[in-house]
């Protein structure tokens, strides 16, 4: 199917929305409440476009492509509507970017930049920060919330923890936990789905606060080190330190979702108690040793016992925590180096 967006002729798939088609082809149409995983919501109205031959404005997140469709994304009418939305959000919320953790990856900031909005066109409402830091890992500032509903859709539709919802109505509407209690006192299990889906700085990872700007970090995709699900994660690295973990969007088995351990349980990596040097026990206590000394000692003793009592007097515990390649080497070590099948790991425990 062929359509035109912003004068570019594109081949698109049937059933796609205009927004999806635009994104796939690198054309920016602003959006706030849409996320690939939570789908069209029609709430922010900032993704509107005009279509030749159709009256009025249409939300591109919900508009399906059709053959020959001509989509206009930058008419005055479109831009004015988008400006209205962003100006309203900026003037009725507290969107200070200076120390905001989302600075640089904020979708509201992106739209404002795209539209060239420096100062909101409307009267700035007197909005105070409305912070909920009762949770160990999730930090909320309702004054930065644009009520896009992505966190709620994720909490109820993706991870189905059913903690978040909208409460109250109109301008008073807000994202609530349970009976509108602080998140830390609610039934929230802190999986961080809401953080991952929030387009602004309203819901952020508490541990990350002040640890570094998004552009100072680099991301490494890897597999989570906890349970057997094998979630795909991005480690956010700054100065040889993990400062944040996010779920990898679009890749199974987790498609961006994580659990509290996978997302927030990374402190151990930089814990001062990490073993940093080989240790040898002498007279009942450990002393530091060089690798040469330690490995020679091990090699000597294992060889001695093997010679004295045969290879089966030695046992090897491999691990469900190390890689396939390392497990392979461990069993090869047992079988080829030592010569025993006494190799096992804690699969059963």
């Amino acid at each position: 199917m062929n359509i035109t967006i912003k004068d570019r002729e594109l081949e698109v798939k049937e059933g796609q929305t205009v927004l999806q088609a635009a994104r796939e082809n690198g054309i920016y149409i602003p959006s706030l409440c849409y996320h690939d995983r939570t789908g069209p919501a029609g709430k922010c109205r900032v993704c509107v476009v005009e279509v030749e031959g159709m009256a009025g404005l249409h939300t591109s997140c919900s508009l399906e492509v059709s053959e020959g469709m001509k989509v206009i994304t930058d008419s005055e009418k479109v831009l004015e509507a988008q400006k209205l939305v962003v100006n309203l959000l900026l003037s009725t919320g507290k969107h200070d970017c200076l120390s905001c953790e989302q600075n640089g990856i904020c979708e509201l900031q992106d739209v404002a930049y795209y539209l060239g909005i420096e100062t909101p066109a409307f009267h700035m409402a007197d909005v105070k920060p409305e912070i909920d830091d009762s949770s160990e890992f999730v930090y909320l500032d309702h004054s930065k919330c644009i009520l896009c509903g992505r966190c709620i859709a994720g909490c109820n539709g993706t991870v189905v923890n059913e903690v978040l919802d909208f409460g109250y109505r109109g301008h008073e509407a807000k994202v609530i936990c349970d009976n509108d209690v602080p998140m830390g006192h609610s039934s929230c299990v802190q999986c961080g789905e809401c953080v991952q889906l929030c387009p602004t700085g309203a819901i952020i990872d508490k541990l990350r606060r002040g640890k570094g700007r998004p552009w100072e970090t680099h991301k490494v995709q890897t597999t989570c080190g906890y349970c057997g699900v094998g979630c795909q994660i991005d480690l956010h690295i700054k100065d040889n330190e993990v400062i944040d973990i996010t779920g990898k969007e679009g890749v199974g088995p987790n498609f961006g979702s994580l659990c509290v351990k996978g997302r927030y349980g990374y402190h151990f990596l930089n814990d001062p108690a990490r073993l940093k040097t080989p240790l040898i026990r002498t007279n009942g206590s450990f002393r530091e040793a060089s690798w040469d000394e330690a490995l020679d000692l091990v090699a000597k003793n294992l060889n001695r016992i093997k010679q004295e009592s045969g290879p089966d007097a030695i046992g090897v515990f491999s691990s469900a925590r190390i890689t396939n390649e390392e497990n392979y080497l461990m069993q090869k070590f047992a079988r080829a180096t030592i010569g025993t099948n006494n190799v096992d790991h804690c699969a059963r425990l």
Binding site: K43, L88, S91, T92, F122, G170, H171
Partner: peptide
């Protein structure tokens, strides 16, 4: 403004403004 459901931005914040 009282009756705006609050779902979409132009109505929610527009009527408020």
């Amino acid at each position: 403004a009282n009756e705006s459901c609050g779902e979409c931005v132009p109505c929610r914040e527009g009527t408020y403004s």
